[in-house]
């Protein structure tokens, strides 16, 4: 009996979410009484694969092939199905990243097994696995169970801190040979563009600096970018700012955008519509800056500043600069 963790690789390196998946698998395996198998899919990934032992992987499977250098739902999915058939796990943990969500949905559908996407917690009661996942963008939480095995769990990034339990540890890697003809995969990623911008993604960042209608226009995001740079943060936005065309939809936090759980969320000029609050209320600490002391955002903010953004944001940037120097 094992728990299988899918370890996402981008640009030849394992992502932080991959280590979180192994840590989650480790905890689940301890509760269920089993071991952790890690599976890596990509190209030239042997080095990163063997290092997964440091994070607690007891068995490591790697599908390493030129065709797998870029993502394809059908290609990666077939590799994951193959790993499931080999490891016969009771549960499969897949990071709920953009790749992971797509992959988990296809794989669970192919296997005809349950998938709970975006889980934030799980527990084992009398041998039965139950998971908690936000629904209605986080306005409610659902405890669910699956009928059928393995139970595929999408693990929301940043909800479980990865633990390197055996620093420097390396394991042996079992190859997963390609069992399909790549030419039969009809939809394939050909390239990734815009990666050179190096923008942090709001769903992955530990700190998010987000702006709303109050920033006043596209140029109003500049002071927020300065602040984000000092903090190593991602820049987010409310729906109002996105719909006004001031910033790309990729930055939107809330019900028709991304749901985020950073350590620190700084809401600037965001009034706090119910759809936005749903998307960021699980942040560990919330700071709000708004000129309206009655804005609903202050009800959820741990620390609020009432004032003019034009003055407060640069002052905050300077204060962080001093503190972090």
């Amino acid at each position: 009996m094992s728990v299988l963790a899918f370890c996402e690789v981008r640009d030849g390196r394992c992502k932080k979410a991959a280590f979180e998946a192994i840590t989650a698998a480790k905890k689940l395996a301890a509760d269920l009484g089993g071991s952790v198998t890690a599976v890596v899919v990509g190209h030239n990934i042997q080095d990163d694969a063997k290092k997964l032992a440091a994070w607690g992987a007891e068995r490591i499977l790697a599908a390493d092939h030129e065709f797998l250098a870029l993502y394809s739902t059908g290609g990666y999915g077939r590799c994951l199905v193959q790993a499931v058939e080999l490891a016969q796990p009771k549960a499969v943990i897949v990071p709920a990243t953009i790749m992971g969500k797509d992959l988990a949905a296809w794989t669970a559908a192919k296997l005809g097994v349950p998938l709970a996407s975006d889980c934030t917690e799980f527990k084992v009661e009398d041998g039965a696995l139950r998971v908690r996942r936000p629904v209605f963008a986080g306005k409610a939480l659902a405890w669910t169970h699956g009928e059928g095995e393995p139970f595929v769990l999408g693990l929301r990034p940043n909800t479980m801190a990865a633990e390197e339990i055996n620093p420097g540890g390396e394991g042996s890697v079992e190859p997963l040979p390609l069992t399909f003809d790549p030419s039969t995969i009809r939809a394939v990623v050909k390239e990734i563009t815009g990666g050179d911008k190096g923008d942090l993604d709001v769903a992955e960042a530990e700190i998010v600096v987000a702006g709303g209608r109050g920033v006043g226009g596209p140029e109003g995001f500049e002071p927020l970018r300065e602040l984000a740079k000092v903090l190593g943060a991602a820049v987010g936005a409310s729906r109002a700012a996105v719909d006004a065309g001031w910033i790309d939809h990729a930055a939107q936090v809330g019900q028709t955008g991304k749901v985020v759980s950073p350590n620190l969320y700084i809401a600037i000029g965001i009034s706090g519509a119910i759809q936005h609050l749903a998307g960021m209320r699980t942040a560990k600490v919330i700071v709000a800056i708004n000129k309206d002391p009655e804005a609903p955002i202050f009800k959820v903010a741990d620390y609020g500043i009432v004032g003019d953004l034009v003055e407060v944001v640069p002052a905050l940037t300077e204060a962080f600069q001093k503190a972090l120097a």
Partner: peptide
């Protein structure tokens, strides 16, 4: 195949507090 056993509301966040007004409050935050 995926069954909801129960729904719960997220725990309320602790009551927020306003630290201060204007740029002077930045250092305090």
């Amino acid at each position: 195949v995926l069954v909801i056993d129960c729904l719960e509301l997220p725990p309320p966040r602790p009551e927020g507090k306003i630290v201060g007004e204007g740029p002077e409050a930045a250092a305090k935050v």
